[in-house]
Every structure is written in structure tokens, then in C-alpha cells.
Design a protein around this nucleic acid. Structure first.
Lengths: 247, 247
DNA sequence: GGCAAAGCAAGAGCGCTGCTCTCGTTTGCG
DNA sequence: CGCAAACGAGAGCAGCGCTCTTGCTTTGCC
């Protein structure tokens, strides 16, 4: 009973905290971050709005908690997609992870907006969000690493002026990988969220219809740009018959 | 005096309307769309908040006006950048336009957020915004067209399953251009805003330092993906000596 | 076991928001 | 000239984030 001696109150605290986050997440999914109201959460939970401040010092702190959870959820989705495509070569895994991220974004548009949309005006994300944010990015770094070790990575060429920056980025993110690949991958990662953002935020309305196919195509081109290639000596099943990579 | 017989009141109306938009734009630039307050605008203009509703039925309508203006401002920036680089070949113009768009976004981050960030929850852009939104996109379509006529366009290859969609998109956007190029350009356009969005929204903090160079590199790769090539028979000055295109 | 201290829920209240309604005034067309 | 439409100002409603005060309950030390 030692831990639950503390626990009677402590447990209630984490339960209430969880309930608040749960209800907040529900409102977030339904109406978006802009309309997330502490008062509405409290109302739904049957408690006074002022009581909420015992658990979250401010609305922004509640948002921070939701952001971390969202990053984690996205990271888990990316990891799952990558693992499910573990042995079909770098291009296949890259495609799978991209589609995993896209699927998550389409399933959770408001969470996506929270992470990659307009930042809240006065709000700056605390450092606690950094590791959670990195999780999904680490998945593609992992793909790059596997490809590099297995001859599935063609070094993209780099302009001379970008080299120092690429070296610096590689030193930070993946010292064991060629700087050209790291820098190009960072760019591809950003571009991926351009594609996803346009779709989630409705910019493709009346422009792109068959979005699955369109996304596949763009992601295939990105793979080519990054330097991911089908393994010369495919150990298992080859990519499957798609011909999405150009040139 | 026929038009200004109407005009005494009508002119006052458009003047007040302009003053409201001006003040609103000032607040937008300073604090962002989320903190744009009708009451604050009215306060600054020395009028009652209720009077504002004679000119804009709701806050969202004021936002719509600002959105159209912002699209127009972005379109003008893109056109200016494209015109300034009129005779340096498709790759140079593409790069110039991309940098023009990026520069505009960095100079007007809140306007950028208004256009390409999280959409306002209940708000759906009326059709009036569509032509303004298309203006900047038309610039790159124009580059594509010029490149196509001047042998500066290498048809990117397409997966078979995307062809029908590409044909449909080309029919809508630019019937005179090869579908492969149109579809790939739409993807590149979206990816461009991934790069810009990551920079404007702070996703590159602590990751990318030399962002000018980084952006140039990514945009050069995009040009290559789209199929823009340096003209075989350069009429005027060649690109200039950069070597930004891979492979 | 008793008791101070800390944690907790609730209510009232402040200043702000978008928006509506009413009222008295001004304007300009027929 | 008359009258309808446009206009500005004020009061007010419901909602928001957040703070402060007031009581009550649990906790943990002596």
C-alpha cells in the first residue's frame, strides 16, 4: 500500500487528468484546436471550469499535452507502416511510411493541423515536444540507414554551396549517413508535408481527384530524388510491379 | 456628377471599408489571424464595434476580404519574380518564382498562414477566392508552357494508373500541355509549400540553418523532377554557373 | 490519534470576444 | 418636400480564459 497510500489522491489526479485530455481530444477532433474551450471541457465533465486549472495551468498547457500525444500517435503510425513493410526494399518502405503518415493525417485532420498547421499565436512549443516530434522523422532516417547499408541508396548530387550545411545536418541527425542523402531527405520530408497539407486543408479540392494514385506518384518521385532505389539483389519479393519511379 | 451623386455616400462607404481592411491587415500582420478582433479594429478606428457590421456582416467576411487581398499580393509577387527572370530559361524562372513565393511568405508569415495554414474551423472559402488563389499557380503553368514550346521540357514518366487522372487535370488546367508535366507540376507546387511552410512555421528550427541555400537546392531538384531543363540552345545568358540539378 | 498543511472543487468576478437589437440621426433619391 | 434606406452609437447577451476567495477533504508528520 505504500505506492497506493500516496495513490489514493495521486491516482485520482491522473485519472482526472486523463479524463480531461480525453474529453479535450474529443472536442479537438470534432471542432479543431481553435474551438477547444476549457469551459466546455469542464462542462462536459461536470465540474467547475476553475477546477480544471488544478490540472492544467492554462489552455496552452493542455494544448501542449495534446500536441505531444498527437506527435506520438503519428510516430506510432509511421513506425507501424514502416515495420509492416520491413522487407520489401527501401522504396517500398519509404512509400509505406509516407502513406502511413498521410493516412494518419486524413484520419486525424485536426491533430495534423495542430502539429503542422498554423502555430498558435503566442504559443511556442516547449522542448518536451521535441523528442515526440522527432519520432516519425526517425523512421525515415532508419530507412535511409538500411538503404545505405544494403546498396539501396544512390547518393544524390549536391551543389557545392550546400555541402557545408549538409555536413552539419548529417552530423546532427545521422553521422553515419552521407550528407547528400540526409540533406535531400530533410527536403523530401518537408515536401511530403506539402502534399499532405494540401490534401488535408482542402487545397486539392476541384484540382486533384484520384488522390491516392496522385500521392503514390509524388512519393515515388520523392524516393527517386532522395536516392532510394530498388535493391539490386532483391532478397525477398520485388516491389510488386508498380512502376512509379521516373526515368 | 452622375457617378459621384451616388458617390457621396458610396465613396464614404468604400473609404471606410478600405480603412477597416487596412487596420485589420495591420493587426493581422502583427498578431495573426487568430487574434484579429473586430472590436480592436473598431477601437483603433474610433468607431463603435457595432458600426463595423454595416461593412462586414461577420468576422469571417472580413477575413475573406483579407484572404483575397493576400492571394492577390502573393500572385503579384510570383508574377514579378517570374517577369524579372523572363529570359533565363525555364529552370531559372521556376527558381525565381519559387524564391519569390518563399520571400513573400517570409515577409508576410501571417498572411501565408491565412492562405496555406490551418483553415478557420467553420469557415469555407467562398468561390470568390478561387481566381485570386489561382493567380500564383498560373505563373508556373506559364513557365511550363514556355518550356514546352521551347524544348525546355522533358516529359516526366508517369505510372500507368495515374494517366487518366493526369489527363483530367491537364484538361482542366492546361489542355495544351502534356498531362505528365501538368500532374507532376501540381505535385511540385504542393511540395513547394511544404518547404515554405516548414520554414515559416518553425519546423526547420534547430534543423536547417542555411535556409536560402537549402531552399535553392530543393527547388532545383523539383525543377528536375518536373522535367524543366536548361534550354539546349540558350538564346541569352545561360543559367549562370550554379549546378543545382542532380544526376 | 490529533492537527497543521496541502490539495481540491466550486463560485463569483474581471476583461475580453463576436454578434444582435434598438434608437436617433443623416443622406439622397423620387 | 417626404420618406425609405443607410448609418453610428449604445446597451446587452452569451461565451471565452483566467484569478481569487471560500470552504471541504485528504495527507503526512509529530
Amino acid at each position: 500500500m505504500t505506492s497506493s497510500a500516496h495513490g489514493v489522491r495521486a491516482r485520482a489526479r491522473i485519472e482526472v487528468t486523463a479524463a480531461i485530455k480525453e474529453e479535450a481530444r474529443r472536442q479537438l477532433a470534432k471542432e479543431g484546436a481553435a474551438k477547444l474551450s476549457l469551459r466546455a471541457v469542464a462542462r462536459e465533465l461536470g465540474m467547475a471550469s476553475s477546477a480544471l486549472y488544478r490540472y492544467f495551468p492554462s489552455r496552452d498547457d493542455l494544448l501542449t499535452a495534446l500536441i505531444i500525444d498527437a506527435y506520438d500517435s503519428l510516430g506510432a503510425a509511421a513506425e507501424a507502416a514502416g515495420d509492416a513493410a520491413a522487407d520489401i526494399g527501401p522504396v517500398g518502405r519509404w512509400t509505406a511510411v509516407c502513406e502511413g503518415v498521410r493516412g494518419w493525417a486524413l484520419r486525424n485532420p485536426h491533430e495534423y493541423a495542430l502539429l503542422y498547421g498554423t502555430p498558435v499565436p503566442g504559443y511556442t512549443a516547449p522542448d518536451t515536444t521535441v523528442p515526440a516530434a522527432a519520432r516519425s522523422a526517425l523512421v525515415v532516417i532508419g530507412i535511409l540507414r538500411d538503404a545505405h547499408q544494403g546498396l539501396g541508396l544512390a547518393k544524390p548530387s549536391l551543389s557545392a554551396e550546400l555541402r557545408p550545411e549538409a555536413v552539419r545536418m548529417a552530423a546532427d541527425l545521422a553521422p553515419d549517413l552521407p550528407p547528400e542523402a540526409v540533406a535531400t531527405m530533410v527536403a523530401a520530408w518537408a515536401q511530403l508535408f506539402g502534399l499532405i497539407g494540401f490534401e488535408v486543408f482542402g487545397q486539392f479540392n476541384r484540382v486533384v481527384e484520384d488522390r491516392d494514385t496522385f500521392f503514390r506518384h509524388a512519393v515515388g518521385q520523392l524516393a527517386h530524388t532522395v536516392g532510394l532505389v530498388y535493391p539490386q539483389q532483391g532478397p525477398a519479393g520485388a516491389p510488386g510491379g508498380r512502376a512509379a519511379e521516373p526515368s
